[in-house]
Structure formats: structure tokens, C-alpha cells
Write a protein that binds this DNA or RNA. Structure first.
Length: 991
DNA sequence: TTGTGGTGT
């Protein structure tokens, strides 16, 4: 062991005895202190001095890879040993540790991953969790894990380091509220920072609308932005007046950085260097921040400069107090990335960035009161994230349930339920929230569960080769660079990777391009230039390839087959869809700004920077949906709705409407509608309804097909029953009552009784009937008596004849019962040539079955003083009928005259024709005449015979003559029933 | 018409 020394100028060095003592006496201690205290580098050395690191490693975690490797290098350097020998680091894709090492720097993600293979973390005798106050998902998970582990590893020592303000929280977490674990506070070596509050001067112009439901009008948004830029410029001015020194300005995003850069450039002399700084900047652009020059530098940064990067030499800070914060919305299941006010802890961290080399000044662009009202801490990531991945990992580690896991701040039941729901959606857990075999496979993949699901689907779809490339691309940052100053050039360069239907395919094209670039490279330098010329980040390309090769290793270990034949669009995209079912969209309008309707009623738009923004089709899926100024879909591709049906079958909710009988397929169909998370995938699809609702389908089959008659069958019962019903219906019209035929329900009941329950369609019915009718041929035959109500028995052909003979010509009679209709009553079909032969007098008698009612009404129309001699009127009418029949006098003479004579005979009363009020009788008591031509076509119809004869009389006569001349000489006059001389004679007689 | 920063089986 080399000699261990401690740099005396670090605050932590002076407290090392105290720390060592606390660690000897306690299993867990908290060390709090601000940046510059030296805790990160010195703590492992204090542990070493205590003899730790011998039985097991001193594990030391950092939130970021860079920090892990640089800390390892520094400690190794301070111990005077080569990196990797006694002090090494392990991050993803890089492990420098040799066997006999004592100190292992690593990312917290690595330690978390190791719990999978080493659940008791036996490799370690001491663990330092650094920067615990950052409260990333990994850190919160580790803190819970360690809390559970401690009783089972009494020999394990744990040090948590944190910023001063939240040390207590950790102390209570590892101890109890009453007896927290010791906190050792080490001062930071920070200079004094003076904080000035310079709230933004709001423009005096009033904001026009106060409706909270309306979006902020553009003009107002623009004014607010200008106000912010004015505030930045004024603050920078104020700081520059204080003296020399570089300025760091915290802004929420790239856009604000660009605007501020523009405002400052207009305002400041050219020798001031204005440097943007955010994570997506190319390495070269970021490097400018670390090169110092003589000019004053104004660095415009996102919160990358709050924790991840330390900009050297900063004397002044301007804090807009804003940041974009990622939050997962459980309601819509989308991520939000909106600008929020930062917490006090973040504001203080920002201010601290100017106290590292000398006293500093920080200007906050908001009120002190505003600061004091802000929350103390940024919400930990676990309260802002989808928990699906966390739950999956916990399940595969066989940890206690999420519900009871000792999180520092446990997620809400609602968030947990949401996480389970997503896992169910991808099939990782079953209905009881237990891990499925598929879930176990997913847990083995170092990917978001949804991306992991795509890989498993790709295995089944024979597109794993392509999917590995796409899936790894989706889990790293986009390799495409789009520098602020060269956006158009970048877009132009990226065009060659574009595809008209899918942005996922762009990843494959970039991949191929890079493979070829590597293959044909002349030097590393040339490759780098090539990447730069194509606006691709070599760093991110490398990361992508690293993830890809890691996945490839797992795939080979599992023995999963890589396809050699190139996958089709459908193969790849249905596999992608398996993981993206929550991110589908349907364009429900043609106007340009319409956007897409998505799951759960959300509405989103394609990211404006997308190549497909104007050409994506009706149905799309998106790799991600993030709500910024609007809900935007990034990385989209066209899909077919049929794929959703196939891939999302387990999520489709189907409903059925309008069940109805269809004659041609001889089955009951219904309109099926399918929705996925409320989004209609299809509707109005006619499907066979029988299997879904056999009872209802059978009812409809009986009602509409068998009883309604909408059915094609050769089964004899059917024609028989139909005819029977039709006959009876004809009777109904004759008797002018609709209750002759029994109700349809009774006929339905008849079929219902005889047909087995499982008959739901034509095919099933025919099969059954064929068998069943063999033994019982009259099965399903309806019987006339059963179909008729007894009261209707009086309807006979004598009473309601089918035809009437007029001068030897048979004219058809039809009956219709429909009050108000022109056809109501009885209609006589009169051939044109015989029109003049029809006698109005005879027509007054109608048919025997209708006369009694007519007579009754005629009597009723008489004045009271006359009709009282005939009461009761119905009886008189009935007896009148009897007398007519007895005399065989039906149809003979004028009806009214005959009736007048009868009354006189029976009562001695003198009634005149004018006493009858004919106009009070309903229309159906007068014969309806239908004039037809020789082809049976109707020429006219009406009850006024005289009017018809006046109109058609001439034509009728001409046709009558023609027939008489044409037939008489050839001796064919007897054809039909026509006898011309007799007809002529009768006509004369009638006139 | 435009997205903060990290991490890994």
C-alpha cells in the first residue's frame, strides 16, 4: 500500500479523523459539503487508511461517466499508482480495473446493474454514493436497495455524500426519525457570492386576455421573450460594470440561448466572446468554453453547466430561474418537457458556479420573494418518471414489491399502477402483475421495456438484424448534428438519409453510411472530417455502435437468430409497433394544421423538423411523444391500421352495433368497432355476429329470416309457411282488419320452440333441418288454424270474390286495408277497351263482404227523425243483407233505390235519395277503378267512374271497335270471355 | 413550425 497523504488545503482533510471515527462506529454516515470540499477524492483515501478496501472493494459511485473516470484518475494520481492497478473505474463499455484493486470508481448505473449478479454486493466492503442530492432514478434506487441490504451485510460500510441542505433527509432514511445516522458537515471552499435580485421589467402594455383556457397570444409570448432578453442584457451590463471576469448565463433552452446571443451581440463590443453551451453542441463547439482567451467571455448555458460541466473562471452568474423539466404525465402517458421555475436548491447551485475562483456576483432575474416561495428541492426523478422500467428491474431482482420498497420518497400508487399498466401492455407482466417469461427476457436487455419489446418482436419477425440497429439508435442520442448556425446545411446533408415513409429507416441508412465510411477511411482524421462534413457526431455514432455491439453480444448469448435476408418494411415496422402501440396516431383532418388523434384522446403534431412533417400518411407511429410548446411526435413512420389490429390485438376493445340479418351470407352481422386506448382503429366492419352473441343472433335469424322471409332456402316448410301467411294477409285486407293473422311473436315462438339453441345462421340451420326433417318431414310446418284468429273465419271468397264479371269480362278485384291511401278498400282492374262497359250502379254494391258496413253507414247518414225507425242500425243492416241474399238480389238495380224500397217495406217510412248524406261515407265505401292497358299497365286510377270514362271514353271505344272488327270475321270472337254483340247491348242498357 | 441533463443488465 502506498503512503496516503491528504492535501492540506482541502477542507475535508482537516476532518478526516472525525470522519474515520464516525465510520468505525457506524455502518452508515452522511458527509455533506459543497463543491470544493474535496470529499469526492479524499473519502476513498480515508477509507483506505482505515484498512477498508482489503476484504472487498471500496466502491464509489458517480452520476456521470466522465466524473467516474476523472475521479479515478485523480485518486490514482494522488496515490502515485497507475490507473487501474489499485484505483480504477468501470463505466459502460469501459473497465480499467485490475484484479487486486482497492478502489473502484463507477457510475451509479453500474453498481445498480451489479446487484443483478451480486445481490449482496459481496464484491465491496465499503460503498460511497456520491452526489446523492442529485436524486436521479439510479441514486434513489440504490439508496433503497442499500437500506434493505445493510442488515444482511453488517460488515458493509456506506457513505452517502450530499449537498448540505438535504443531508438530514438521508440521515433519517438510513437511521430513524428519532435516531438519524451521523451527518458530518464539511465546509466547501467556496468564495462569497453576492446575490442580487433584478426582476424582469414587464412591459407596461396590459396583457389583453385573462381567459386561462386560451393559449397565450403570440404577441404576448413574443413580448415576454423580449422582456427576458432585455433582462439578460441589462444584467450582463451591470456585471460588466463591476469589473473584469467571465459571465455564465443560465437559460432554459437552445432557443433562448440563440435569442440571447443575438441580443448580446447587437449590444456588446465585438471583443466580447459570446459562447453558447448545451449538451447537443458538437465537441468542438463545447471545447471553446474551456479555452480561455483575453476577451471577456459570456457563456450562455442550459443547466448542463449546473452539474455536468464546470465552466472555468466564472466570476458572474445570471440566472433566469428557468429550466426545462421532464415530467411524465400519467393522465396522457406522455412526457412533458416544459419550462418551469427552478427550485431553490438549483438556484443556489447555479449561484455557486461563480464562487469557485474568487468572490462572485449572481444576478437572479426574479424577485427575492419569488425565490423564497419556490420549493426547496427539485422533485426527485422517480416522482417525475414512468415507473415501468423501475418495476421491471425490481421484479427481476426479486425485490420486495415497489409498494413496500424503502424509497426515500415513494412514488404514488397511481404512478405505480401506471408502470404496471405499461408492463402489461408490452406483455412483461400478467394480470396479477407477475413477471411473464417475456418479461424475464425483457429484463435481460439493457433497454427501455418498450424498446426491449421491439427486439423480441423482431426475433419473431425475422428482422432482428435491422432492429438491433434501430433499437440501439433509439436508446442513444440522435447522432445527427444540427448546429445553430448551419441548420440548413445540416438538413441538406441529412437528406440523403431520409426516407419518404419512415424516419426509423434513416437510422439504417446512417448506419450503412458510417460502416462504409469506416471501411474506406484513410485516417482517423479523415473519418472525423467526413463525419463533420455530414453533420454527424462521431461521439454519438461511437456510443451507438457500442450499444449495438452490447446488444449483439446478448443476442448471441441467447442464441437468437439474426436474419440474413433483408427485412421488409412491414416486418421491421410491425416489430417496432409492438413497442409503440401507445404512440400511434390518426390524421383526422385534411387541413394542414390538423395534427393527429392519438391514444386516450390526445392530439399531437409531427415535430416540425421532421422530414415527414408534411408527407406522413393517415396512420403513423412515433418513437416518442413529448409535450413542449405543443405535443410533438418525434421519429415517425407510416403504418397500416391492419398492423395495429394484429400487433395490438390484446389491447383492442371491440364493440358491436346494428346487428342485422343478411340474406346473402345467411347470417346475422353486426358493425364492429375497435378502439385502442380510445382511438378508433376501425368501425362499421360487418362481422358474423352469431358466435359473439348466439342468443341475439338466433332471435334475429328467426325473426328476420324465417318469419320475415328474407331467406333463400329449398326447405319445403319455408315456402309452405310463407304462402300460408300470405293467404291470411290477403284475408286481412278483405276483411279490413289487421288482426286475422296471429302476431309475428307467436310465429317466432313456434320456431323458437322447434329449433335448437345453437342455431345462429343459415348454414347451421340447413344442416340441422336436413337431419331433423328426415324423421319428421312436417317439422316446422305451420297449420292454417294456428295462424288465424277465430273471429276472422267469416272471410270467404264468396264474401270477397277475386273477380267481378262485367258483361262477360272477368275483371280482377284486389283488396287493400290502408285508410287514407288511394288504394284503400276494393279496386276493380278495368281493361281500357271495357271501360265504357262498366256500370256505376253495379259498382255501388261493392262486394258482399263490404256491403253490410256500407248500408249501416248509409242509414247512419239519415236525419235522426228518419233513422230512429231503423234502430239498432247494425241489426237493420244485417237483416237487410239477409233479405238481399234470400232474394239473390245482390248487385241488381240501384243500391239506394233498393234500400229505399226495403225501408218502406219494413217500416212504412218514405225516404228520399237526397236524405242520404253520401259525402259522410269514407272513401273505401266506393269502388276504386284502375284503368289498365292491354299489357296490364295502369293508365289511371280513381273512384269517379264518370270522370275516367270521360277522359278515356274515346280511346276505349276505338280499342273496342278495333277488337270487334279484328275478331268477328275470323270467327275468333269467342276468344276469352268477350262477346261483342252482348257487350254492346249491355252498354246500351247501362247508359 | 422546433427538446434540459444524465445513466445501464
Amino acid at each position: 500500500m502506498p503512503e496516503i497523504t491528504f492535501p492540506e488545503d482541502l477542507p475535508v482533510s482537516g476532518r478526516r479523523e472525525e470522519i474515520a471515527k464516525a465510520l468505525t462506529e457506524n455502518q452508515v454516515i452522511i458527509v455533506s459539503g459543497e463543491t470544493g470540499s474535496g470529499k469526492t477524492t479524499q473519502l476513498p483515501k480515508i477509507c483506505l487508511q482505515l484498512g477498508r478496501g482489503e476484504k472487498g472493494l471500496i466502491g464509489h459511485t458517480q452520476p456521470r461517466r466522465i466524473a467516474a473516470s476523472s475521479t479515478a484518475k485523480r485518486i490514482a494520481h494522488e496515490l502515485g499508482t497507475p490507473l487501474g492497478e489499485h484505483v480504477g473505474y468501470k463505466v459502460r463499455f469501459n473497465d480499467t480495473l485490475s484484479k487486486g484493486a482497492w478502489v473502484k470508481l463507477m457510475t451509479d448505473g453500474i453498481l445498480l446493474a451489479e446487484t443483478q449478479t451480486d445481490p449482496l454486493l459481496k464484491a465491496y466492503d465499503t460503498i460511497v454514493i456520491d452526489e446523492a442530492h442529485e436524486r436521479s432514478l439510479n441514486i434513489d434506487f440504490l439508496l433503497g436497495y442499500l437500506k434493505q441490504l445493510l442488515p444482511r451485510r453488517p460488515d458493509l460500510k456506506v457513505i452517502i455524500t450530499s449537498a448540505t441542505i438535504d443531508a438530514d433527509r438521508f440521515a433519517r432514511h438510513f437511521g430513524t426519525n428519532e435516531k438519524p445516522v451521523p451527518v458530518i458537515e464539511v465546509s466547501g471552499r467556496l468564495y462569497k457570492v453576492e446575490v442580487r435580485y433584478r426582476p424582469i421589467e414587464r412591459d407596461a402594455v396590459a396583457i389583453p386576455t385573462a381567459d386561462p383556457n386560451k393559449p397565450v397570444p403570440k404577441a404576448v409570448a413574443a413580448r415576454e421573450k423580449r422582456d427576458l432578453m432585455d433582462g439578460v442584457v441589462d444584467a450582463v451590463d451591470e456585471l460588466c460594470r463591476i469589473g473584469s471576469g467571465d459571465v455564465l448565463v443560465f437559460l432554459p433552452g437552445e432557443r433562448e440561448i440563440r435569442d440571447a446571443a443575438e441580443s448580446l451581440r447587437k449590444h456588446h463590443p465585438p471583443h466580447v466572446e459570446i459562447l453558447p453551451l448545451f449538451a447537443r453542441l458538437s465537441v468542438e463547439e463545447q471545447d471553446r468554453v474551456f479555452r480561455t482567451t483575453n476577451a471577456r467571455r459570456i457563456v450562455l448555458a442550459t443547466n448542463v453547466a449546473e452539474t455536468s460541466l464546470t465552466v472555468p473562471g466564472i466570476r458572474y452568474v445570471v440566472d433566469a430561474g428557468l429550466a426545462r423539466v421532464k415530467r411524465y404525465s400519467y393522465r396522457n402517458k406522455v412526457e412533458q418537457l416544459q419550462i418551469e421555475a427552478v427550485a431553490q436548491s438549483a438556484a443556489n447551485q447555479r449561484a455557486g458556479r461563480c464562487g469557485r475562483v474568487a468572490d462572485g456576483v449572481c444576478i437572479r432575474l426574479y424577485e427575492e420573494d419569488d425565490f423564497n416561495k419556490r420549493p426547496k428541492f427539485t422533485d426527485p426523478e422517480i416522482l417525475r418518471s414512468s415507473l415501468a422500467a423501475v418495476i421491471l428491474r425490481m421484479k427481476s431482482l426479486h425485490l420486495t414489491d415497489v409498494e413496500s420498497f424503502p424509497f426515500i420518497e415513494p412514488p404514488t400508487p397511481r404512478a405505480i399502477a401506471d408502470g404496471y399498466q405499461l408492463l402489461q401492455e408490452v406483455g412483461a407482466v400478467d394480470d396479477n402483475n407477475e413477471l411473464t417469461p417475456l418479461g424475464r427476457k425483457l429484463a435481460r436487455l439493457p433497454l427501455d421495456p418498450r424498446v426491449g419489446r421491439m427486439i423480441l418482436a423482431a426475433l419473431d419477425n425475422a428482422c432482428l438484424t435491422e432492429m438491433l440497429i434501430v433499437a440501439s439508435a433509439l436508446s442513444v442520442q440522435d447522432p445527427r448534428d444540427r448546429p445553430m448556425e448551419h441548420q440548413q446545411a445540416a438538413d441538406e446533408a441529412h437528406k440523403k438519409f431520409a426516407d419518404d415513409k419512415s424516419e426509423f429507416l434513416s437510422f439504417l441508412k446512417i448506419w450503412t453510411w458510417f460502416e462504409q465510411a469506416i471501411e474506406h477511411k484513410k485516417s482517423n482524421r479523415q473519418l472525423m472530417d467526413n463525419c463533420r462534413a455530414n453533420f454527424l457526431s462521431q461521439l454519438r455514432l461511437r456510443e451507438w455502435r457500442d450499444v449495438h455491439s452490447q446488444l449483439l453480444t446478448i443476442v448471441r448469448e441467447q442464441g437468437w437468430r439474426l436474419n440474413e435476408a433483408p427485412a421488409t418494411y412491414e416486418q421491421l415496422h410491425t416489430a417496432l409497433l409492438t413497442g409503440l402501440l401507445g404512440n400511434i396516431g390518426f390524421k383526422d383532418g385534411e387541413e394542414p394544421g390538423a395534427g393527429y388523434l392519438g391514444a386516450r384522446g390526445i392530439r399531437f403534431h409531427i415535430w416540425p423538423g421532421s422530414y415527414l412533417v408534411k408527407k406522413a400518411g393517415k396512420w403513423i407511429m412515433a418513437a416518442e411523444l413529448v409535450e413542449t410548446t405543443r405535443l410533438y411526435a418525434r421519429c415517425v413512420a407510416q403504418i397500416q391500421p391492419e398492423w395495429i389490429e394484429k400487433v395490438g390485438a390484446h389491447l383492442l376493445k371491440k364493440s358491436y352495433g346494428e346487428p342485422r340479418w343478411e340474406k346473402r351470407p345467411a347470417q346475422v352481422t353486426a358493425a364492429e368497432k375497435a378502439t385502442l386506448h380510445g382511438l378508433i382503429i376501425y368501425s362499421q366492419r360487418r362481422i358474423h355476429y352469431g358466435p359473439l352473441n348466439p342468443r341475439e343472433a338466433r332471435e334475429i335469424f328467426i325473426r328476420d329470416a324465417l318469419v320475415g322471409g328474407d331467406y333463400d332456402t329449398r326447405a319445403p316448410f319455408f315456402a309452405h309457411n310463407r304462402k300460408l301467411v300470405k293467404d291470411i294477409e290477403t284475408l286481412e285486407h278483405k276483411s279490413r282488419r289487421l288482426d286475422v293473422l296471429v302476431d309475428d311473436q307467436l310465429i317466432e315462438a313456434f320456431y323458437d320452440q322447434h329449433i335448437p339453441q345453437d342455431i345462429i345462421n343459415g348454414a347451421g340451420f340447413e344442416k340441422w333441418y336436413k337431419e331433423a326433417s328426415r324423421d319428421n318431414p312436417k317439422l316446422l310446418y305451420l297449420v292454417r288454424e294456428e295462424l288465424m284468429r277465430h273471429e276472422a273465419a267469416g272471410v270467404t271468397t264468396d264474401m270477397f270474390p277475386k273477380a267481378m264479371s262485367v258483361t262477360g269480362i272477368e275483371m280482377q278485384l284486389t283488396y287493400h286495408f290502408e285508410p287514407g291511401s288511394v288504394r284503400d278498400g276494393v279496386t276493380l282492374a278495368v281493361p281500357l277497351f271495357a271501360l265504357n262497359q262498366v256500370s256505376a250502379e253495379r259498382a255501388e254494391w261493392l262486394v258482399p263482404g263490404m256491403l253490410k258496413e256500407k248500408v249501416h253507414l248509409l242509414l247512419k247518414s239519415l236525419p235522426q227523425k228518419l233513422r230512429r225507425h231503423m234502430v239498432p242500425l247494425p241489426d237493420y243492416a244485417g237483416k237487410f243483407m239477409d233479405r238481399i241474399h234470400a232474394k239473390m238480389a245482390f248487385g241488381r238495380g240501384n243500391l239506394i233505390d233498393v234500400l229505399i224500397a226495403d225501408i218502406r217495406e219494413q217500416t212504412g217510412i218514405h225516404v228520399l235519395t237526397a236524405d242520404f248524406k253520401m259525402e259522410t261515407l269514407p272513401a273505401h265505401h266506393f269502388m276504386n277503378f284502375k284503368v289498365i292497358d292491354e299489357h296490364g299497365r295502369q293508365l289511371d286510377m280513381g273512384r269517379n267512374l264518370a270522370a275516367l270514362q270521360a277522359e278515356f271514353g274515346r280511346q276505349a271505344r276505338a280499342q273496342f271497335q278495333k277488337m270487334a272488327e279484328g275478331t268477328a270475321p275470323t270467327g275468333e270472337g269467342a276468344s276469352g270471355a268477350l262477346s261483342v254483340p252482348a257487350a254492346v247491348a249491355l252498354q246500351a242498357g247501362a247508359a
